[in-house]
């Protein structure tokens, strides 16, 4: 190992903090995309971007060991996969479900922020 365990742990913690601090802006971007899908007509490009953002969040979150956050992100990502396959305007039931997933994710981010970022 090139660096000492202590130095590596310190670097990893710094990366985790950086990740945590960026979370609100990432979530805001997702919310903007979500609002476009809900309030305007179905846009596959926007849906794909939202899917990609969720995919990245869940993947990075798991690598950092943030299980709950990743789980919520993964759930919404999986739902987006279904919507992308359907590829048409959202029905009211789908809007409700999608918003439900996003609220869960928001709650998880809020909880995470209070416990991690000081």
């Amino acid at each position: 190992m090139k660096d000492s365990n202590q130095a590596i742990t310190k670097k990893l913690r710094a990366l985790m903090t950086k990740f945590a601090r960026k979370l609100p802006s990432r979530l805001k971007q997702m919310e903007d995309h979500l609002n476009i899908l809900i309030n305007r007509s179905w846009d596959k490009g926007v849906a794909k971007q939202l899917y990609a953002d969720l995919h990245k969040l869940s993947g990075t979150g798991t690598s950092f060991g943030f299980k709950k956050l990743s789980e919520k992100s993964r759930q919404m990502e999986e739902y987006m996969t279904i919507l992308l396959k359907n590829d048409h305007n959202l029905q009211s039931r789908q809007v409700k479900e999608l918003c439900g997933y996003f609220k869960e994710l928001q709650r998880s981010v809020d909880h995470f922020q209070t416990s991690w970022v000081k």
Partner: peptide, 8 residues
């Protein structure tokens, strides 16, 4: 983010 983890 993954790039940074990979660097580490």
């Amino acid at each position: 983010d993954i790039q940074e983890i990979a660097r580490l």
